[in-house]
Amino acid sequence: MTQASQDSSSDAMLEKLKTKPGSTKELFNKFMTGLTAFFTVAILIPLVAVVFDVAREGVGQLGLNVFTERPPAPGLTGGGFGNAIVGTLITLGIASLIAIPIGVLAAIYLSEFGRGTKVAYGIRFAANVLTGVPAILAGLFSYSIVVINFGGFSAFAGGVALSVLMIPIVMRTTEEGLKLVPRGMRDASLAVGATQFQTIAKVVVPAALPTIATAVTLAVARAGGEAAPLLFTALNNNFWSFDPGRPIATLPVLIYFFSIIPYRPQQQLAWTAALVLLGIILIVSVTSRFLTRQKQF
């Protein structure tokens, strides 16, 4: 083979390496990339639209009075929903007190003792089913257990209903966090003579704390926005109440009632209440992330 023919054949080889603008392959590639980018943006549209709409409609009424006053009588203007903010915090507080210990302890069992067992598989499956159960059924559960047997509608009954929604979220997310703690950490702790309890309490759970905070935030955000489970458990209350044993006003229920009655001022107040609810959930997310921020492994 001569020098010249060798050069020409390698030129042909190099030509093959170059891109061919305008080829079908090239165009299809660009089209698909564009499509994925389009839908990524499309996903944001509902979120942005909701936040924007709520802010636009709700910000006009926002003032100190909405936090300190109780709702006006139908048709009258002014007033606020301070009692519903307090009520939401109380029901969420009760729900968290029930759901966090149960969810976290169950997650510890699944991750530390029940790995690969049939029991763990069954519980995980049940939790997944529970996540998909309509929220109103959680209300029905609390109604039939708490409301009927323990003195009627109350903030506590509302808290129980919300905790049913929170438990599976807390449990599943916490379990994922515990599983991410490397096996070596547990080995190291046991190797210096720690018991299993000490290992879990002092090494595994602290290492998983950021995920546990995420779990709680997700659950609070989910439960905080629910009206259906509260309708026939916490009911509603036009007055201030701090008593967990009595009916209590909550933001979602207030939004629901005020948005369906034909008075303009109440409808305006419902928008503002929605804005405040969004704000509360945002504050919960940001603080819990901030408090538990730490180095990862």
Binding site: D187, A188, A191, A207, Q294, Q296
Partner: peptide, 10 residues
């Protein structure tokens, strides 16, 4: 015991 992979606690 000292393990194969260094495993300090966080």
């Amino acid at each position: 015991m000292v393990f194969q992979k260094p495993n300090p606690f966080p």
